[in-house]
Amino acid sequence: MKINPELVTRAITGFIKAETARAGFKKVVLGLSGGLDSTVCACLAVRALGHDKVLALIMPYKNLDEAGVAHAEKVASLLKIKSRKIDISPQIDLYFEKYPTDSQVLKGNKMARERMSILYDFSAREKALILGTSNKTELLIGYGTIHGDMACGINPMGDLYKTQVRELGRYLQIPEEILKKKPTAGLWPGQTDEEEIGLSYEELDQILYRLVDLRQSAEEIIRSGFEEKKVKRIVEMIKRSEFKRRMPPIVKISNRTVGHDFLYPYDWDK
């Protein structure tokens, strides 16, 4: 499942360029967390449009991920892109003071949607298309917040597994410390994706690649030496998260219905 990074870069930068122009924008905006995905995405955006056309929003909650903020600032300065730091703590705290919870997941989702809301606001203010930073691994297992970090104008890296994004990052020569650090959704201090998902990205991607790209059955994958429990869990995660990958279903009543038989392309007249 190794990629051809040169070809992938060409395809993605061409996509960013074409879709930005078609949407009627000259600029793009993205949330920069200082993690691997948003760093690679920022890098691709700069290659596609130039550093003066990319705006990065760094949106920390208190000091939940100080290392991330430092990395994001470093990436912005390395890429010479404009960045703005927007602290989301006041509005998040205000909400949870009123509706308290101990659930880190609820808090994390709320933060993800707050960042989404700011990104859409800045998209309109700055006339900039929002670049999503979700990768194929996250999309397939549903490791993301619906209408939160999954919301965007276009998704340039949605067909690359996490380990492939890392490969691409290496090719694009992003800072070594970002390539090496443990991926985190920044839900709580010290949180890592792999601990929360219960699998390493290497193993997860190997199984997903076999299931999705090679169209192997769970049984075949288990027979080839992967742990049954893990394979079955991944299959279940894919199934349970389909709703995050689709527009909500509309109950069909009329003869012609949005999503059912009123079907127009996204790039219509563009």
Binding site: M1, K2, I3, N4, L7, V8, A11
Partner: peptide, 13 residues
């Protein structure tokens, strides 16, 4: 459309 960009794909898909 192009499909498949693995390390063996060369310059094209």
């Amino acid at each position: 459309p192009g499909r498949g960009a693995s390390e063996t794909s060369g310059q094209g898909f």
